[in-house]
Amino acid sequence: MRVAVLQFPGSNCDQDALWSLRDDMGVQAEYVWHEGDSLAGFDAVFVPGGFTYGDYLRCGAIAARSPIMAEVKRFAADGRLVIGVCNGFQTLTESGLLPGALVRNEEQKFVCTTIQLAAVNKTSAWTSQVNKVLNIPIAHGEGRYICDDDTLKSMQDHDQIAFLYVDPHGEPKESANPNGSVANIAGILNAQGNVLGMMPHPERATKQILGEIDGQLILSAFQRVLA
């Protein structure tokens, strides 16, 4: 099985993602340029972080309308694994694959730190191995997840909340929320559970020498589903 790591002009976590998958997760991964219109030969997609198209218009807006994303939508509809991290999450909401939107952090500041995450959904491929509070890095200026009340209720009813920002004891305290996201939401799933968008960077947390390895619990989805 092979994971397509998408590359857009301005992607900057593409190499982190590729090497995390190859080196640390033992998963085959290749870059796929945004102008491509085929994901033939791939089994899953990683939409990496960055500042695609300079964040012009809105974060992820232009990337979401590039040729490869039509193929990603078909892929997602087939139930295959798709993950979008940071700018990749913004790209997935802009493309309509995930509900809601990501806007500027409440306090206006770019936040770059390590936060704690807890999984709410326990059954998806992405969250089923997450049995503890995770330490995962974040680095974003526009990561405040918002949606209307009906969408939030629907996501809760369909178990689509993947991750919350929590304190070290696993409590979603307001003080643990780094960006003002509604209900401390750090990551969400589509209704089928195969598409995950999250602001924190699991691909930066798969190698001990880099500080954290908790990202492995999320990215191991590729190993299990594709094995």
Binding site: L57, R58, A61, R65, E94, P99, G100, A101, V103, I146
Partner: peptide
């Protein structure tokens, strides 16, 4: 609707 504005926000 398709690009210039995001109707969600």
């Amino acid at each position: 609707e398709k690009l210039l504005a995001n109707p969600v926000i």
